[in-house]
Nucleic acid binder design. Sequence first.
DNA 1: CTTTTTATGGCTCCTGGTGCTATAGTTCTT
DNA 2: AAGAACTATAGCACCAGGAGCCATAAAAAG
Lengths: 106, 106
Amino acid sequence: MTTKVNEEIDRALLELVKDGLVTGASADKITLRILGESTPPKPAPLSPDEIRALRERENVSQAVLARHLNVTVGYVSKIERGAKRPSGSALAMLHLIKRKGIAALA
Amino acid sequence: MTTKVNEEIDRALLELVKDGLVTGASADKITLRILGESTPPKPAPLSPDEIRALRERENVSQAVLARHLNVTVGYVSKIERGAKRPSGSALAMLHLIKRKGIAALA
DNA sequence: CTTTTTATGGCTCCTGGTGCTATAGTTCTT
DNA sequence: AAGAACTATAGCACCAGGAGCCATAAAAAG
């Protein structure tokens, strides 16, 4: 896309990206190749108990958590009982909350 | 669950929560009732073009975005072409990125 | 030029997640 | 005290979100 303009600078910027010192914005497109090992790993599955513990740690009701995840209350109830297992983005968000707290989604 | 201990302090803390001055942790459980209008609204659907524009704004490849959302590359490709429409947590995360940037998910 | 990665496209298939409904316990309001 | 409103659980039918697979083309890396 961007035609090679000033390769030196570009390379330097990409170095920073690679090191996680810079998040993106400038330089060329960030690809998997560039990020390499520093790409977010596939989030591990969370047990029903872990999910409930997580929610209680954040001190929110199922309804509030549901809104943040953009899912239904019934679904939250189910994943806490083990009737359903979250995957995909739902799982990603739970991990996000686990790491940074619900406040991070505000 | 928690038996009313020192209602005065509790009430005061909940006031702070209600005002968004405090995020949780202490006080009683945060419920929808308490949050009221300050609850995250249902995210509006994003058009294929908006999604692609968003990704390009963040300068990441489909593969990188996919990892962040914890979905497959194929799926990202599809929602950018309109072959599938994201909903639930996937949509929530896209809005998150739109608001705070991909860096917020790190 | 060769290899790797990105992006698209299509097909099948499974289950995540919805919607609805009902019940019971809590906590507010009057 | 009774009632309204919210929380949490539960079950069931149903749809489409998203996975997995394979193939193709094009761009970037080496």
